[in-house]
Nucleic acid binder design. Structure first.
Lengths: 200, 200
DNA sequence: CCATACTGTGAACAGTTGTTCACTCGTACT
DNA sequence: AGTACGAGTGAACAACTGTTCACAGTATGG
């Protein structure tokens, strides 16, 4: 009947299974079963499991852009930016756990199309972040490559934090504040580094 | 006949398959086939595929410690340390590609025992690195937590670099120097950061 | 030199997989 | 009102999976 309806059911079912399975090992029959649909129905929406994966990647990064916008909202001095960013990141990871776990895991996926898509999106994300950095007083005079470098370092830290958060959330939730503080420290370290850095 | 002989064959066969498969999706039959051995033989050496994975993790980190020792060998001023470290890392990743790819990929493995083992080893690795950092002039006065933080940042960078290197090596080997230069810059950024950092 | 322990074998098991097929509807458009 | 489209079905296919089993061969130790 409603095409988009079962499509969503397939995506959600897949995302649910991907909680403790890798995309590489995700069976078409499993997904359709989780979606409450006949196996053959899968092919009305995707050709292969890879396509399903690509859609999930796209979805995940849509939420990442949401994150960016939220974080940009309250911008004061550097320290506030850091604390605010981390708070927003934590809240976001918490409410989109499945998507974050998925991209963290499939970042090195043997399914090349998915791996490449994720890498491309992360690169894009870092570029956007670097244009934001260009507006800050400390880094406003830096040339583009240096901005990208710093943005890459920050994004790497974010990915790492997301990974830690997911683990902590499902294993020892009471240790969450600890992760938050750790991340803020590291981020502060990176931003202090900017004051000592001589760009070329 | 020779027990350790087939055991190695199984490990090597697995490592070979893991080039474009995730551990989660690695079949026992596949492994025995790659090792040229009957399926049932697998159970003489490992109970489940997880155990095989744990052995591979251990092997990978043995080579990582080799790396550490090699890198420690030629230590001069900070700039030399950076260049030397990166050179050694590159050489090492090149000659142990399969192991590095494996740990990079399974760092987020759905197979929890393997994931935990990797995380534990990385943590240990960072701790060792931090005691090395304590010997450097810039960081000698830092308290332990700050040293660990910096070590974590560096290790994170190394993992990231290993990942990039593997991709570059099998997709566009001519761009290797580019990755090397990029990594040196980032590492230098992190070390410059140390001069501006106020530990507490 | 014999007996014991143990690695590797090949057959068998029931279960699951991806993919195709002709099919039945319900929907939307003419 | 009727028709053409296409989403979802259920059965069928051969191929593969993990695991067990009794057995064969060989090395080791008494």
């Amino acid at each position: 009947m409603d095409k988009s309806r079962t499509r969503r059911a397939l995506l959600d079912g897949a995302l649910d299974l991907l909680r403790d399975r890798s995309l590489d090992n995700l069976g078409i029959r499993e997904v359709t079963r989780a979606a409450g649909v006949a196996p053959a129905a899968f092919y009305r929406h995707f050709q292969r499991i890879d396509d399903l994966g690509l859609v999930l990647v796209e979805e995940a990064f849509v939420t990442l852009r949401e994150l960016m916008n939220e974080a940009r909202a309250g911008a004061a001095d550097t320290d506030d930016i850091i604390n605010n960013s981390v708070t927003v990141l934590v809240a976001h990871v918490r409410s989109h756990q499945d998507h974050y776990r998925f991209i963290a895991r499939e970042q090195f996926s043997p399914i090349t199309s998915v791996k490449l898509a994720i890498r491309r999106e992360i690169k894009l994300f870092a570029t956007e972040l670097s244009t934001d950095l260009a507006r800050l007083p400390v880094t406003s005079t830096w040339p583009a490559p240096d901005l990208v470098m710093l943005a890459d370092l920050i994004v790497g830290l974010m990915v790492d934090t997301a990974k830690r958060l997911i683990d902590v959330l499902e294993e020892a939730p009471e240790r969450e504040p600890e992760v938050v503080r750790e991340t803020e420290r590291r981020l502060r370290y990176l931003s202090f580094g900017a004051t000592a850095w001589h760009p070329r």
